[in-house]
Write a protein that binds this DNA or RNA. Structure first.
Ligand SMILES: [Mn+2]
Ligand SMILES: [Mn+2]
Ligand SMILES: [Mn+2]
Ligand SMILES: [Mn+2]
Lengths: 228, 228
DNA sequence: CCATTTTTTTAGGCGTGTCTAATTTTTTTA
DNA sequence: TAAAAAAATTAGACACGCCTAAAAAAATGG
């Protein structure tokens, strides 16, 4: 009798973080990702990235052309999406079940996403009722890796006088989320864009039934909204 | 103004596993733990242990006397208990909330116990309703590190003719727990000890309202019971 | 109590994932 | 298009957590 050996290639947390970061940069810039962009994303030095991408290339998780950057292979992309799925399911669990604030969960999910158990994630997902979006409005990939793409625009690109609804935050930083808490902006909040300052792109907005506030272009560009 | 820098010493998973293993061996043998015992516990070579205990000694987590073994300091013991607390709370969550089998959760908890977040564990504990025992009957230390000590005996040392109730399993191995599932033995199951074979210490027991079964001394010694 | 066995330590090495310094390649721009 | 600037790579190093081989220390036992 012939036993078929199953190779379960287990990636380290570092390797998984690279795959996630590369996918994110690919989606943002739709081109191959320069090693320098990864160094910047992780706050590490460029040679460290060169070493790692060589290793990931050997594992067929990405294609690396010297001095030209990297692109995920199908295998690498599939794994990257699986990790994002884990991250977002954990974030949803932390906010929905354990009542963490949305600004607290990203760092924790960075750890939890590296726990190796497909079954755990599937059970969590079922326990949560198969949520489609995480606490920041980001879509949760399904088990097959399908991601619903939000047709949102960033508030920074919205038109003055328009009414919008916040459906996502394109930046998980604790600081931004804390600031949004202060402004009483959360998922579902209605915004009226009253004016845009040409000089710096800052906006004056009316937040729900509250007063008006001025927000910087940086904040405006991380608020994902739909017309309302 | 003088700021007091707070050093949050973050231990690696390996370091945490050493602390846990040392505490377990200390409790079992009530003496200092030889490096060889740790090598055996982890299935690694003795020189690896020597290296690690030197490092843990530098961090004041244990006392190491060359060729004489190690003992946890108060600091080390406190950390070890905190890790056991995490392990058992995660196991309880997995069984109670996500409906894993009790035989599936140990390995997963081995990963989850190394997620660094006091707040996460406290929230999980509250969500679970402050459980006092994990799915294998092991006591869950409270936030202060207090562990209720079970006054159980092992079935192997029980007296023939006695009625007992299973309150714990002193071995988390998947294989044993699977075997107990097959025997329909779980926490709370009533047992009647019918006879003991002098030759090998094996027992014949009546399991609840089911038939009688013969179990080996090895199994008998991992069943924690109280008189019933 | 000395010789043999067992346990532990020392010495040196390796893969991972990071670093700095120096060099090479690519891009920009004068 | 050639020089300068920017980006990337190579070279060499280091902490971590493990290894094997050899030496030393402790325990055993005749
Ligand atoms: Mn991560
Ligand atoms: Mn998120
Ligand atoms: Mn366990
Ligand atoms: Mn347990």
């Amino acid at each position: 009798m012939k036993l078929s050996l199953i190779f379960v290639e287990v990636l380290s947390a570092a390797e998984e973080n690279y795959l996630k970061a590369i996918l994110k940069l690919e989606l943002e810039h739709k081109v191959s990702v320069p090693t320098g962009a990864l160094a910047h994303a992780f706050g590490i030095q460029a040679p460290s990235v060169t070493d790692m991408v060589k290793k990931l290339a050997l594992k067929k998780l990405l294609k690396y052309e010297k001095s030209k950057g990297v692109r995920l292979t199908d295998k690498g992309k599939k794994l990257a999406i699986a990790i994002i799925r884990k991250h977002r399911i954990w974030e949803t669990f932390l906010v929905q079940t354990l009542e963490f604030g949305w600004e607290e969960v990203h760092e924790l999910a960075e750890q939890l996403e590296h726990v190796h158990s497909e079954k755990l994630i599937d059970k969590l997902e079922a326990f949560l009722g198969f949520p489609r979006f995480d606490p920041h409005g980001d879509p949760i990939p399904d088990k097959k890796g399908t991601i619903v793409s939000a047709k949102a625009i960033v508030l920074g690109a919205a038109k003055v006088g328009g009414n919008y609804k916040v459906i996502g935050i394109s930046d998980d930083s604790t600081e931004l989320l804390h600031y949004l808490n202060k402004l009483h902006v959360k998922l579902g909040t209605k915004l009226l864009l009253q004016s845009r300052e040409a000089f710096d792109g800052s906006l004056v907005i009316k937040i729900g039934s509250r007063g008006t506030e001025s927000i910087s272009a940086i904040v405006a560009n991380s608020l994902l909204v739909v017309e309302d």
